[in-house]
């Protein structure tokens, strides 16, 4: 790791100032991707601004309209174990409980995960399927607008995610096929019945990051069953291909995981 300066922010505006004052600063929100990358000398930020100790962006609140707001600095283990999340969006709690290993789940945060938008990260599938709203220190985004490509988001350089609001939904479930080595998603499918209809979002498989499966959504609107999606697969042309899975294999996994998610949804 190259030398870097660590700063612990106590408020969001404090963090924004620190970032502005740094030569080449990076926001740190759990560091489960950034720190290993720095250890491999593949990233060399001059300053790290730690968001994890900002009280105002941590914690989970069930709001009066039934939606759930998760502060950006909330770790995965807290989401997985939260009673309100488990009751309202069990698929989201399950998803959080399958991220990495216990160490990762106690360090990694929802804000850090979505701001990084790793194409194999789990959260983007939930946000996209559930039509979540991403709140920052400047504005709000819909999930659809937020994730713009592999490791790319609509965030400005100096913008800080403060929270994610998940509207109510039913029949939420997440099925993930993990990469045998890294245990990141090779295909992770989140399904939900939302006020806007059935939603299916896929992470880990696509060349451009998280994506929706409109054909599956249509089929599920008419018939919420595993059989409804059994014959539907994304085009292999748009799938990732690597040592662990060809694009054809990933396309197959999307169908299989979608079936399993629907079957598990309740």
């Amino acid at each position: 790791m190259y030398e870097t300066k660590y700063h612990r922010a106590s408020t969001v505006s404090d963090a924004a100032t620190m970032l502005k004052n740094a030569d080449d600063g990076k926001l740190l929100s759990g560091g489960q991707t950034l720190i290993p990358t720095m250890k491999q000398r593949l990233a060399a930020p001059s300053d790290l601004i730690d968001l994890c100790h900002i009280g105002e962006i941590a914690g989970i609140v069930k709001q009066t309209d039934g939606s759930i707001r998760i502060g950006a600095a909330t770790c995965h283990a807290d989401v997985a174990g939260n009673a309100d999340v488990k009751a309202a969006l069990p698929g989201l709690a399950d998803l959080a409980g399958t991220i990495g290993d216990p160490h990762v789940r106690h360090m990694g945060t929802i804000g850090g995960s979505i701001a990084n938008n790793d194409p194999a990260a789990d959260y983007p599938a939930a946000l996209l399927a559930l039509g979540a709203t991403i709140e920052t220190n400047k504005r709000e985004f819909s999930a659809q607008d937020f994730f713009t490509g592999m490791f790319e988001t609509a965030l400005d350089e100096d913008e800080i995610v403060t929270g994610v609001v998940f509207p109510t939904a039913s029949n939420t479930a997440y099925a993930k096929f993990p990469n045998p080595a890294s245990r990141y998603a090779m295909a992770g499918v989140f399904v939900a019945r939302t006020s806007a209809g059935a939603r299916v979002a896929v992470t880990g498989a696509g060349q451009n990051g998280v994506f929706r499966m409109p054909d599956m959504e249509k089929a599920l609107d008419g018939n919420w069953s595993a059989d409804a999606v059994a014959g539907i697969a994304p085009s292999a042309d748009n799938m990732l291909s690597d040592l662990h899975g060809t694009s054809a294999y990933r396309a197959n996994l999307v169908t299989v995981m979608a079936k399993r998610a629907v079957a598990a949804s309740s």
């Binding site: 491999q40 045998p180 080595a181 890294s182 040592l243 662990h244």
Partner: peptide
């Protein structure tokens, strides 16, 4: 290609 635990299983 398999130079870390990300790829070497």
């Amino acid at each position: 290609l398999t130079a870390s635990y990300m790829d070497y299983t």
